[in-house]
């Protein structure tokens, strides 16, 4: 039995010799490089997605998680960075993503049918390295299934991206990575905006036998409430990121930060020559 702290320390160091270089040496956390999410409000709130760390985005359905993912993909692929999306439920829509600015050529899309495939694919991609942005999309996987994942999977993911330039984002319905996540972002759906055309404009649109209804409604967008649940991003780097955007940036505290952004609907219908509006809309 060691008699004092020095002996105990040397005993532990001896036991770990060859495996851990300096077990008692404090390792300073490396300053993380943050990258834009593609949405100003989220950038101002979080400082962007950190490289070499795990970011967790959670929320219920229709909470803007995929919108945030598509924005981030658009931003990263626009800079010719290689991105990977592990889609646990094969739900990604490449047509809409391309319209939203995602360079599909830069995106590796892995369409999985179950969560085990998704986890193994994530392991392969992270261990292989070289990807700038890796997203594991578990949005539609039941909470119970994700909850039952072994905790070491999150540690493994975090360890795999540590000291790399990879941004690892996990999207799910509730947070599961716990302390492995450097940034945990909670999203909630807000108001749904519908735009209604004015009757005067409609009346001018009469063509032949077709009469427009009294009003026409379009999906205009969706408000998304975002809040930071946990953030280990260095406040200094967050402030640096904000530099030039707003002068009175929020202070460096990581809790109780919230924002609202609006995800706009794609104005694709009227740009498509073959799409023909048939009837109007209604309020239920």
């Amino acid at each position: 039995m060691p008699r004092n702290f020095a002996q105990l320390r040397s005993q532990v160091e001896g036991a770990l010799a060859g495996r851990v270089a300096a077990p008692f040496e404090y390792r300073e956390r490396r300053a993380t490089e943050n990258t834009s999410t593609g949405i100003d409000e989220i950038d101002l709130l979080t400082g962007g997605f950190p490289r070499g760390a795990l970011t967790e985005i959670f929320g219920p359905a229709c909470s803007g998680r995929t919108s945030l993912l598509v924005s981030a993909l658009g931003m990263r692929t626009a800079q010719a960075e290689a991105c990977a999306l592990i889609d646990a439920c094969d739900a990604f829509d490449p047509c809409q993503a391309e319209a939203a600015g995602v360079e599909l050529k830069q995106l590796l899309w892995v369409r999985c049918r179950n969560i085990n495939h998704a986890l193994r694919a994530t392991d392969l991609l992270l261990q292989g390295g070289g990807f700038s942005f890796v997203c594991l999309d578990l949005s539609d996987v039941p909470r119970k299934t994700v909850r039952q994942l072994p905790l070491d999977a999150w540690f493994r993911f975090r360890r795999a991206v540590e000291n790399t330039q990879t941004i690892l984002v996990i999207i799910e319905q509730e947070p599961n990575a716990k302390t492995c996540a450097s940034l945990v972002l909670k999203l909630e759906g807000g108001l749904v905006h519908w735009s209604t055309a004015q009757p005067r404009e409609i009346s001018e649109a009469r063509t032949g036998d077709f009469a427009w209804p009294s009003f026409v409604r379009l999906l205009d967008g969706l408000d998304v409430h975002a809040g930071v649940v946990r953030s280990r991003i260095n406040p200094v780097s967050r402030m640096e990121f904000r530099e030039g955007r707003i002068s009175s940036a929020t202070s460096g505290s990581s809790n109780s930060l919230e924002t609202i952004f609006r995800a706009n609907a794609m104005p694709w219908r009227f740009t498509d020559a073959r799409v023909e509006p048939k009837l109007g809309s209604f309020e239920g």
């Binding site: 290689a82 990604f92 490449p94 599909l104 995106l107 590796l108 899309w109 495939h117 694919a121 070289g130």
Partner: peptide, 29 residues
């Protein structure tokens, strides 16, 4: 640093083995 094409090919082959070759790649509209 970009991805080493040789390593990438191996990763994609392993992914294809896992989820099927039609389920891995870049989507093209």
């Amino acid at each position: 640093n970009s991805i080493d094409p040789e390593k990438l090919e191996l990763i994609i082959a392993r992914l294809a083995n896992l989820v099927g070759s039609l389920n891995v790649g870049s989507p093209e509209t």
